[in-house]
Design a binder for these strands. Sequence first.
DNA 1: GTCTATACCCAGATAGAC
DNA 2: GTCTATCTGGGTATAGAC
Lengths: 205, 205
Amino acid sequence: MINNKDRIFEVSVDLFSKHGYDGVSIRQIASEVGIKESSIYNHYKSKEAILDAILDYYIYEMTKEEIPVSQAGKNLDVSFDYFYKTGLELYKTKLSEDKMMKITRIILIESYHNEKIRNFVKTAIVGYAVEGWVELFDLMKKKGLIRKDCDSKQLAESFYYYGLFLLIQHFIINYPEDDEKFLNELGPKSVKHMNLLFNSVKVSE
Amino acid sequence: MINNKDRIFEVSVDLFSKHGYDGVSIRQIASEVGIKESSIYNHYKSKEAILDAILDYYIYEMTKEEIPVSQAGKNLDVSFDYFYKTGLELYKTKLSEDKMMKITRIILIESYHNEKIRNFVKTAIVGYAVEGWVELFDLMKKKGLIRKDCDSKQLAESFYYYGLFLLIQHFIINYPEDDEKFLNELGPKSVKHMNLLFNSVKVSE
DNA sequence: GTCTATACCCAGATAGAC
DNA sequence: GTCTATCTGGGTATAGAC
């Protein structure tokens, strides 16, 4: 049996992802849960607090199990393909839960007028991730897989921004679009893109 | 002397770009223009109609002068660099008007819950533009500039999605950020990105 | 074309009984 | 922890005088 606080959370995620934060009222949430709107305030002190809780949940889920750089290095020793697919699988596993997909859309939608969310996108989804890719390309230079004179930062952005656009395209521009189809195409598409870039900087034998 | 209908338009563009469509009321617009809210309805039949007018203006401005494919071909004959920089300059010229920058942000912000805007983004900003790049890469194959076995569609997306992300990053994720700085960096950044891709598929001599 | 006045609705939130 | 009842404020939009 799921308690009302959790039901409010679930329903809010669902409605916010469909209509945006401003497009959903406390009354609608209450009605969907099957309680009166005043009861919501026993669980969350304001509407904004629900959104905060949703973001906190997302941040926790996305950051709880990371692949440490040391492990990334080992994976890379096996092969670049192995490394890449391992990372992609982990990301897809996290994202593929229905709730996480919905929250991803909420975050993309609301990042334009919610300071906290915009900051999360800017630092975690963009900044921190790009740094990770820079480290990786630096590592690949050391291992002699790519040329030493190429720009790791540019390479990281050239690769990763493409993937971020695919995300935005799915969650905003083409919405609503089949989630499973998107997740299935994400891998092959980004592999093709990576191959183009990799081909440009790899050390030929 | 600028009439009130135009002032309503200008003020709406400004406020919508700052706070989003839902975040701005007819009262605010009227107050900023210096008239009563009821007067607005003499010029626009609803709030939605103002947004429609803004989108129509943007579409008109962005599509009124296109580089025809024939001209693109000639530019390409000069050199790839020349072609690329000509196109980029035209795009930057259109975008660099203050009003167009603001509307670009409105369009990116509102595309999640306005069918008409989402459709414009999907077909014109993404779909149509990608097709243009596909044509270009096909042309480059014919001219023997790039290898015939590479995938024009993937190349188009690999290139263009990067640029679209830069747009979203500036107008949403890093907002507010200096517009001029963005416009100045857009060229060099996308050239670097293009070089990486081009290097991967070019016909070596 | 602008004004005053107002209709009508729905939002977020709170007080207090049970 | 849920309810009924209510407060307060703001939203879009219209009617009709000037």
